[in-house]
Amino acid sequence: MALLAATTTTSSVAVLAAAVFLASAVEMVEALTIVLAVGVTRGWRTALEGVAAALAALAVLVAVFGPALVHWVPLAVLRLVVGFLLLVFGLQWLRKAVLRAAGVKARHDEDAIYSEQVAELTEGAPVAGGRDATGFVVAFKGVFLEGLEVVVIVLTLGSASHRLGLAAIAAAAAVLVVVVAGLLVHRQLSGVPENAMKMGVGLMLVSFGTFWVGEGVHVDWPGSDLAVPVLVATYGLVAWVLTAALRRAAARAAGHPAPAGAGGRGA
């Protein structure tokens, strides 16, 4: 019995850490593309100032809402609200990943986004010696908006499971990995299998969301926490079937056979 309890706790902790790490990595890859475009076209000082300002704003949000969520909101209410947020967020991620894996929606192309950003930023040259407001705002917005998703995921997953520290460490590790990779390759990370990662994150967010809204309305989950990996597997199967069905429908409409496999391969 103790072994089963330990196994279920370990599995849900692993799913939690993986979800936060993958979500943070995907968002940071997208932010890195924007920062690189600003750095190359408008100067690294402007880009890094934008990044620093965005990180400071995100840190304020975490400092204000993190302790407030953990200490003041009752766990049952927290899990219901947080579970609903995660469920909606996860459904959005999963929907997008399935549509991209099936070829219905264009994949997220870091190379194309980078070229587009560079072209836009090159048009208006920065004022010599003065502050470059355009570069600053683009870098700030890129890091803040991508980072905000990370903050929401870290705060919701971390606070509802009472593992805010673990969620923060997983997010920080992902940021570190992406930044080091970016420094090593000196370009945007277009080889990252972004869609497969988004599919994985979507599956985990939907699973945690389902589990916690269920807890909030007093659903009796068989196996307690062990329901989370079962939900991940169930939703994974559904995502695979949906992707395959959409591919087959698209191939039928185009008049040729569907390609094999339905996994969310990278962009």
Partner: peptide, 17 residues
């Protein structure tokens, strides 16, 4: 309800996709 909730979530995702 532990079976019903995932079924409803799958239905929501399926119709949206």
């Amino acid at each position: 309800a532990a079976v019903l909730l995932p079924v409803l979530v799958i239905a929501v995702l399926g119709q949206s996709v």
